[in-house]
Design a protein around this nucleic acid. Sequence first.
DNA 1: GTAATAGTGTCTATAAGACACTATTGA
DNA 2: TCAATAGTGTCTTATAGACACTATTAC
Lengths: 246, 246
Amino acid sequence: MSITETQSHFLENYDIHEFDIPLTSVDMTIFTIEDDLLKVLLVKRAQFPAKGEWALPGGFINLKSDGTLNDTVSRKLKEKTGVEISHLEQVATYGSAVRDPRGWSVTIAYMALILNENITLISDESSEEVVWLPIGDIQDNYQLAFDHNVILADSYQRLKNKVQYTSLPINLLPQTFTLSELQKTFELILGYNIEKKSFRRRLLAAEIIVETGEMRVGSNRPAKLYCAKASSKEHFFQRSIEGPRN
Amino acid sequence: MSITETQSHFLENYDIHEFDIPLTSVDMTIFTIEDDLLKVLLVKRAQFPAKGEWALPGGFINLKSDGTLNDTVSRKLKEKTGVEISHLEQVATYGSAVRDPRGWSVTIAYMALILNENITLISDESSEEVVWLPIGDIQDNYQLAFDHNVILADSYQRLKNKVQYTSLPINLLPQTFTLSELQKTFELILGYNIEKKSFRRRLLAAEIIVETGEMRVGSNRPAKLYCAKASSKEHFFQRSIEGPRN
DNA sequence: GTAATAGTGTCTATAAGACACTATTGA
DNA sequence: TCAATAGTGTCTTATAGACACTATTAC
């Protein structure tokens, strides 16, 4: 009997239900900008456990239809927001005997950035309400289900860190935007103001955005419109934004 | 009936085995320095699946004895190396229907740094051999089990990235070390040489190491010995090492 | 004109790389 | 003295922050 035949035999007799394995799910921190505020999508849970509590959206892997973890997350994102996401990345995985009352559980946490435009939030049987809330409000006033306050804090920290050395905030803006709008987005996430000249020099030197030739006309001097090069939604700068000196 | 009583009722009737959930494991890329080479610990699998193939060490969560994922990883590390690790961090989580022949599986990958001193590698019923192999050798010549070549590559990339802006390599050296030894360790990981003056300026300015007062005597001019401040095994520098200019 | 926002010129500050130099040991 | 490694002095380069300045629009 060859090794391969023996392995086939092993697999035929293998039953996952004989083993103690943890519950495994995914959770998402979905960020967007609305009314000049960084907001996060929360759902009010319609099912046990933690029924009636606010939580990050998430759910279980569908072993039949999901080929990979990314499929699971994309499916969940679409169920709640109905739109494609601009940016998605894994943040961390949390596992312990006590984080879920059902028993040992593991959750893989993702962070997503989406453009808030023409989005209709979708409730379903798992969530009786779906809302965008400002990140500051949540951190100050909301007790989320499970360990979701920790997951949210870690995801926000990841976002803030990456905004210092990448071009990620481009994913929160529409196809075309002005440099002032982009700077404002960076500032909203970082929580402090950036020097205008430094910001423009940095973005233009990186050659990750191109002028469209159009202008945004407002009540004042019109501003050049730019769009991001396809490859530049996550450009890594060589140096970080340092913030104001004292 | 209150919400809480209803939730208790829900939990009493909850049976995890009714649901399709993935196999969930942890895998580790354990780095050390030996003979001026960056090496990784590999095991030859003694059990199906992938029996007889080289793989990263790992295993399943023990739902009874492990309180958290970190407990699982610490336990596994100790099983193989018998020593405490200097640095441990999560790298990423991999999940798909096809990565393990037993079915849908998720693995949480960790990267560890350990000091190679007085370590006796330990084989057990799950691994017939346990060895340190140079990272370059593995990447060039070894077909690892499952998706472990990818996990290894991602972990090594994470290590290289962090070495550019943190003090992580301190974790690969003994209690006391010279600046030249530390620089050599940085260089082995990065794969290129660092300018000596820049390196020393950077490390000393950060105030993360202190002179012990002792000297390392060799065949040449003796070198000052330093030890790391307790809090400085993972110092984040403001700027990255940039590498040679052209 | 003024207010408001877009956009620039140019200085300083910080920390990295380059590279030649000096220092201290063993043999 | 020489080879080898430890350690320094100092110049250049790159890019960030500061801040005052000019430019263009609506009113």
